[in-house]
């Protein structure tokens, strides 16, 4: 099976005063297309740095990052922006949505940047909003929606243009358990239906129990890579 993501010997060190913090320490990881992986670690374990490096938001000090067979760790800002726009969907922990746009406009935002026509955009956004259970809330602004609804809009935006890869950083951190379960069910459904690769960084036990592959990290290293029966 071809690889959606391949990381080779990634190193990333941050300085905090005189101290050096190894966020990634010779980390190597492969994730196949259609994979559903959870990165877990205690705070400061390096999962968010790894997620950002895979997403082209951060650059490693050394090592290689390959996305869909293309090396990206030496790409320019502009190439990385294009990669994020065309191939990667992001779901962040918070501040996921653009406050001045409605739910539907937020979902259409990436497609608009991609140059998708009005009719196609409208059709796809309606379809995906229905898929994430937000019919009737299309015209609401983020401030008029609950945290769970906002995360659903962010998920809808992340998957609407059918990216090969969706990266989610602590997507359930601000959600109650019901909303978190519902969001994970949605991820699973989208993964199974569209074959989208999901990589989720979390330390939420409910999320960890939900995925078929759990990668445990500590101090920038992978300490365990578990294939498990998802709940």
């Amino acid at each position: 099976m071809s690889m959606a993501v391949k990381c080779v010997e990634l190193c990333k060190t941050y300085r905090q005063g005189d101290a050096e913090i190894k966020a990634l320490d010779h980390l190597s990881l492969e994730i196949e297309n259609g994979g559903f992986v959870c990165l877990s670690s205690p705070s400061g374990g390096g999962k968010t740095t790894l997620l950002n490096t895979i997403g082209g938001l951060d650059k490693p000090d050394s090592g290689e990052v390959w996305i869909a067979g293309k090396r990206i760790d030496q790409s320019s800002k502009s190439e990385l922006a294009e990669l994020r726009l065309r191939q990667i969907g992001f779901v962040f922990q918070a501040y996921n949505l653009i406050p001045v746009l409605s739910a539907q406009e937020n979902v259409e935002f990436v497609m608009q940047l991609q140059g998708v026509g009005d009719a196609e955009r409208g059709e796809k956004s309606q379809e995906v909003l229905k898929e994430v259970g937000l019919v009737g809330l299309e015209n609401r602004r983020p401030a008029e929606m609950s945290g769970g609804q906002q995360q659903r809009v962010a998920v809808a935006r992340a998957v609407v243009s059918r990216p090969a890869l969706v990266l989610a950083d602590e997507p359930t951190a601000n959600l109650d358990s019901k909303a978190a379960d519902s969001l994970m069910d949605l991820f699973t459904e989208l993964n199974e239906r569209h074959g989208t690769t999901f990589i989720i960084a979390t330390h939420d036990q409910r999320v960890m129990a939900h995925v078929p592959r759990l990668v445990k990290m500590l101090d920038g290293r992978i300490v365990d890579d578990i294939q498990q029966q998802a709940n």
Binding site: G55, L57, K77, S78, A81, E82, L83, R84, L85, R86, F90, F92, Y95, N96, L97, I98, P99, F109, V110, L113, R157
Partner: peptide, 16 residues
């Protein structure tokens, strides 16, 4: 700032 960061993360070009 965070909103601008989000837009950049989603693939909006700095020139935009």
């Amino acid at each position: 700032v965070r909103e601008i960061g989000l837009m950049l993360a989603l693939g909006m070009k700095p020139m935009s």
